[in-house]
């Protein structure tokens, strides 16, 4: 019998090593695996490379993960989300390496890794500062730059429902990076609000087939709350 459901955070995060590359789902707090991030902080793991859209807010979650010194490098598109105080301090002090990646390029680099594609050409960023050091090529009269796949050791994702096979159903705009990240890591751990019986998820509703998911842990997370960006 396939059963990916685990009961403790120790089981959920077992085997995550220093120096790992970790994908973290979510956009704002919607679809963000808060409890897994908190548990990752507790493990005391070091020298992580993390990839996600933002660089954390305040002193909780991803910001706290960086503040306790677990993160060597962050790959993200928008480090200036609301209240990025920890990121800005560490970055200014030279304690955190930053790789800025356009949001769509970030998603596509992860998708490419998931699909076994090592690199791809894109027009995004061609001719800009972010093209520096990247191979470029003119195809059908337009310039493209080469971006490499972003494969990870670990993906931490959040979903609304799961069954014991690890099939995931997302809620509202909570899919965002989660389905792509879930498919791009050696170890994918899903934090879900509800566990349902095998067969209860309609096949059309499944956003991430369980084949991508290694472990599922149920967490009563409640509702997300995200502070709007300052325009």
């Amino acid at each position: 019998m396939i059963n990916k459901i685990v009961r403790t955070m120790a089981e959920a995060l077992d085997g995550i090593k220093d120096g790992s590359t970790v994908l973290i789902g979510g956009f704002g707090s919607v679809g963000q695996p808060d409890a897994l991030i908190e548990a990752l902080i507790e493990t005391g793991v070091k020298n992580l490379t993390i990839a996600l859209n933002n660089a954390g807010s305040g002193h909780v979650g991803v910001a706290k993960l960086m503040e306790v010194g677990s993160v060597r490098k962050i790959i993200c598109s928008f480090p200036r989300s609301s209240d990025p105080v920890v990121f800005e301090t560490l970055y200014r002090e030279g304690k955190l390496e930053l790789e800025i990646t356009p949001q769509g390029t970030l998603a596509e680099r992860i998708r490419a890794a998931a699909a076994g594609i090592p690199a791809f050409f894109t027009a995004t960023g061609a001719g800009t500062l972010l093209a520096r050091g990247k191979e470029s090529r003119v195809i059908d009269g337009r310039e493209y730059i080469l971006e490499t796949a972003l494969k990870a050791d670990v993906a931490l994702v959040e979903a609304w429902q799961a069954d014991r096979w690890g099939n995931l159903v997302y809620r509202g705009s909570g899919a965002n990076f989660n389905p792509t990240m879930a498919a791009a890591a050696t170890l994918t751990v899903a934090q879900v609000q509800n566990i349902v019986e095998l067969g209860d998820l309609h096949p059309h509703m499944v956003g991430t087939p369980g084949v991508y998911v290694n472990r599922v842990i149920q967490v009563d997370r409640g509702e997300p709350w995200t502070k709007p960006e300052e325009a």
Partner: peptide
């Protein structure tokens, strides 16, 4: 509905005919 936000992370509504996709 706090599950539905836009790129500016503001709460939004959906119109009839709306759909969700992932980032990729």
């Amino acid at each position: 509905d706090v599950w539905n936000i836009n790129a500016g992370k503001q709460l939004i509504t959906l119109v009839k005919g709306a759909s969700f996709v992932g980032h990729a």
